[in-house]
Amino acid sequence: MAETVIRMENVTKVYKIGQSEVHALRGITFSVKQGEFVSIMGPSGSGKSTCMNMIGCLDRPSGGIVEINGTETAKMTEKELASLRNRTIGFVFQQYHLLPGMTVLENVMLPLRYQGIEKPERVRLAKEVLERVEMENRLSHRPSELSGGQKQRVAIARAMVTKPHIILADEPTGALDSKTGLQVLNLFREINSAGTTIVIVTHDGGIGASANRCIRIFDGNIQSDEEQIPVMPFYAMAEENA
């Protein structure tokens, strides 16, 4: 049986804004096993981004339990959380977050530097994952010289290079055209088929439907949590039928 890599139990998050309190999460409970492909869906303000921040160890809960790869995060120091993130989670963002002054190869090597890996090995591992995402011919290019789809492929390679248990993607196709977005989703499917857990946070119903399981969040509560047969995003189906 697959191990649980994410466990959220009765998780709450309250933000204080002046004299007011905003309840972003109201006691959510779910778990994700190694090798799942999960979408977390909801409109703006639903709590899905806060949920993502909990999974990514970027924020702490007000109450409840958050466990990542069997480790409870609430009592960890910032240094310990940074180490857990670097070892366990790869991040992919809508706006890529590539460093403009670095080449493609240097951007992908960066997480390995934080792990203390020597440069020759960093180069080898970075080239290996860039080949997997078909960016091996752009090693010396800078982000400004790449298309949106190429930037996202580099961002995915950077997320993969530490061989994380989980890849957490925040609206990963939001800045892409429909054809390129479909290519990125197919790349996530390939990565998932090799055993990496994928969690995509999105407001897009087509993207949510592309996962094997969809957790819907609304007003800080889980509305539904369902296994599903993944389908192509609606825009891909429209193109196919054109």
Rank of each mutant, 00 (worst) to 15 (best):
E171N: 10
T103E: 06
A238H: 13
K33G: 03
T77R: 09
V14F: 12
G27D: 02
R122T: 03
N107T: 11
M237E: 15
V14W: 10
Q228H: 13
V133Q: 00
V184I: 15
L168D: 01
I166R: 00
I229F: 15
S39K: 13
P164V: 03
F91L: 06
I89N: 00
K48M: 13
N186S: 13
R213N: 13
D204S: 14
A242T: 07
L168F: 10
V199I: 15
M232I: 10
L25S: 02
I215E: 02
N192E: 07
V32Q: 01
S31P: 03
H203E: 12
P172A: 09
R113S: 12
S193F: 07
G42V: 08
E72P: 00
G63C: 09
G174Q: 03
T197K: 00
Q223R: 14
L110R: 01
I200R: 04
E106P: 04
L139A: 06
S44Q: 11
M76Y: 11
T196F: 01
A24H: 03
S83E: 10
T4L: 07
P100M: 13
E121P: 02
S46Y: 08
K119P: 03
Q19F: 09
A242V: 10
N53M: 13
G63E: 12
L110A: 07
V161T: 04
N221D: 15
R7M: 06
P164F: 02
E171I: 06
V123I: 10
R26N: 14
N186C: 09
N241R: 13
G181A: 08
Y235N: 06
E171L: 12
L187R: 01
F37N: 02
R124E: 14
P120T: 04
E67A: 12
I167W: 01
E121L: 06
L84D: 04
V154E: 06
A2T: 08
C57Y: 05
L98A: 10
D225W: 05
M135C: 11
I167L: 08
P43W: 14
I217D: 04
R142M: 10
H23R: 11
D170N: 11
N107I: 04
I167P: 00
S140G: 07
G70V: 03
Q95M: 15
P43L: 13
P43Q: 11
N137Y: 04
E190Q: 13
G101L: 08
V108D: 02
T73Y: 05
E3G: 05
L125G: 02
S83P: 01
C51I: 10
L105V: 05
G90L: 04
G116M: 10
S178Y: 11
E80L: 08
E136I: 11
E78R: 08
V92R: 00
L98Y: 05
P111Y: 01
P43K: 06
E239K: 12
E226K: 15
S193M: 07
L182Y: 15
P230F: 14
F234R: 07
G18P: 04
D170R: 05
I17L: 14
T4M: 11
G18Q: 08
D204W: 15
D59E: 15
Q183C: 09
L139V: 09
M8S: 02
I17R: 12
G35S: 07
I17G: 09
N53Y: 14
A157C: 04
V199S: 03
T71P: 03
N212W: 12
Y15F: 15
R87P: 04
A74R: 09
S20K: 09
T180Y: 12
